[in-house]
């Protein structure tokens, strides 16, 4: 099965690393993967996005026009990607800063106050992206949480490994928020 996903938000919110970590974790589970970033003018101050494909078979196109999953962390990204989620697909949106909720009713919409939760409960807004990733794997079961931890261990420089427990807490908080119906 092929899962086509897009992650989008402001530069600095960690959307590119979120996608990278998910792709790496899937690779570690033996799946085929591709990660395609936006690297254009967007990245220089505006919105950034990346497209992640995970599949059991060789991945044809690393880009797509319709997605099974869209994760949007700011309003321009919601405007850009709400319409390109496949019917029946999943849309996760950052509900503590985006003040115009999505309107589609043929997709599974998940409001996630990730920024607020990361600031208040983890006292570190930087791990907001990990919280979102936790929510995504909580909803979709794309990779195991353990694979994400392995991915952090493999990709973070050693000097940052002390931050892994905090990231793990963020992933767990994200998972618990969706299981409790947040």
């Amino acid at each position: 099965m092929l899962q086509e996903m897009v992650f989008a938000g402001f530069g600095g919110q960690g959307v590119l690393s979120m996608g990278k970590l998910l792709a790496y974790a899937a690779m570690k589970e033996g799946r085929e993967i591709s990660w395609m970033p936006s690297y254009g003018p967007e990245m220089r101050g505006g919105t950034a996005n990346c497209v992640v494909n995970i599949s059991d078979e060789r991945i044809a196109s690393p880009v797509g026009s319709m997605f099974d999953v869209a994760v949007v962390l700011n309003l321009p990204s919601l405007h850009k990607f709400e319409s390109v989620v496949k019917p029946g697909g999943v849309l996760i949106w950052e509900s503590s800063t985006i003040k115009e909720p999505p309107t589609r009713t043929d997709i599974n919409v998940h409001a996630l106050p990730a920024i607020e939760k990361a600031s208040n409960e983890l006292k570190n807004v930087k791990v907001m992206n990990m919280l979102v990733l936790g929510a995504l794997v909580g909803i979709m079961d794309i990779v195991k949480k353990e694979s994400l931890i392995v991915a952090l261990e493999d990709t973070l420089p050693k000097r940052h490994h002390k931050l892994i427990p905090l990231n793990e807490k963020a992933i767990e908080l994200g998972m618990s928020l969706v299981s409790s119906g947040a």
Binding site: K20, A23, M27, W35, M36, P37, V63
Partner: peptide, 10 residues
Amino acid sequence: DGSIGQMMEK
């Protein structure tokens, strides 16, 4: 091209 230069794969 830039897309293959910038994309990540296994």
